[in-house]
């Protein structure tokens, strides 16, 4: 009797834990456990064919003092993120504004712009490698149409990274769609009120659209930033980090250490640096957002 009463109390909780148990197990086995191991590995030398050997913080010392690719990979990754992410935001936002007008065949237009963002991976990387072929590629043909003699793109230390940035713009459709949804959530009344105040279109854009959409901008910024800092496939397939390390992304460096040179300990240390970098960058963006992101709730407070 007593037991069954207790059971009746516990039962709903047990059911909840039971249903959540796949995730709990997965979290312990594939996230929390490996995170702890990763901390340990980052303090060892671990060539995989022999057991890890404790080296303390030596991996981090090597990273900051000896690894001649480390700073370069940080620089390349940062440069890519700093240019590509804002470019994505601006392009995606402008496209969303354009495609939120009263225009004919709106669905078709939106589909066209969204389409490239659904494909990804090796096939896309190969396509763009061919597009950027310096002698026979589409990019230089298009530039030739407007009288520009195109660079050698992926073969040039100067132009390889810009080529990858241009390529990334092809998939701007994803953030565009998020912006469109955000734009459609802006109350019509705000525009009408602004129009009655005599604001012109440009003012309405800056004083109504942009503030109202700023939370969406923040979201796209964070997601874009995290993705950019983890860039791998394009660089691996299209340039293998070259020419002259100009596209040697951080993740490529990590992959090479782990799987090409079997420096598992060092690669784990690199992974924690990447994590710290992503964390700091994200927190920085979030902190700064209190200045420029406008939340609807604030309206009532004024």
């Amino acid at each position: 009797m007593h037991r069954s009463k207790l059971w009746r109390q516990i039962r709903p909780h047990a059911a909840g834990w039971l249903c959540a148990s796949p995730w709990i197990l997965g979290f312990l086995i594939f996230t929390l456990g490996p995170m702890l191991w990763s901390i340990y590995y980052s303090l060892t030398e671990y060539p995989l064919i022999r057991p890890p050997v404790w080296v303390g913080l030596d991996n981090f010392r090597v990273m900051f003092q000896e690894d001649k690719f480390f700073y370069n990979s940080l620089r390349v990754t940062t440069l890519y993120a700093i240019v590509a992410v804002p470019l994505h935001l601006v392009t995606g936002f402008l496209m969303a504004v354009m495609l939120n007008q009263k225009i004919r065949y709106i669905a078709l237009w939106r589909t066209i712009y969204f389409l490239p963002s659904v494909v990804s991976g090796v096939a896309v990387a190969l396509l763009w490698q061919w597009i950027f072929n310096s002698d026979f590629g589409l990019a230089n043909w298009l530039l030739g149409l407007v009288g520009i003699d195109g660079p050698s793109w992926l073969l040039s230390p100067t132009w390889a990274l810009p080529a990858l940035i241009i390529m990334s713009l092809w998939s701007v459709g994803g953030s565009m769609v998020i912006f469109i949804a955000g734009l459609q959530g802006v109350p019509q009344a705000l525009y009408e009120a602004a129009e009655m105040d005599g604001s012109n279109a440009v003012r309405r854009f800056w004083h109504v659209t942009v503030p109202m959409i700023s939370p969406v901008i923040l979201f796209n910024l964070i997601i874009g930033l995290i993705a950019a800092l983890q860039t791998f496939t394009q660089a691996f397939i299209m340039t293998a980090g070259g020419p002259k390390q100009s596209t040697h992304f951080f993740m490529l460096h990590l992959y090479n250490n782990a799987f090409q040179w079997l420096k598992m300990g060092y690669a784990s240390a690199l992974a924690w640096i990447l994590f710290a970098y992503i964390l700091v960058a994200t927190l920085f963006v979030i902190r700064s957002s209190s200045v420029w992101v406008f939340y609807e709730g604030e309206i009532k407070g004024r």
């Binding site: 959540a20 995730w23 709990i24 979290f27 086995i29 594939f30 996230t31 456990g33 490996p34 995170m35 191991w37 990763s38 590995y41 995989l48 995290i226 800092l229 983890q230 993740m251 990590l254 782990a258 598992m264 690669a267 784990s268 690199l270 992974a271 924690w272 990447l274 994590f275 992503i278 964390l279 994200t282």
Partner: peptide, 23 residues
């Protein structure tokens, strides 16, 4: 636990890449 779920969204997969490979 749900907070932890959300937190794992922020964890880059690289951190667990090597240990999961070893596993």
């Amino acid at each position: 636990l749900f907070l932890i779920v959300l937190a794992t969204m922020m964890l880059p997969y690289q951190v667990t890449l090597v240990p999961v490979f070893v596993l």
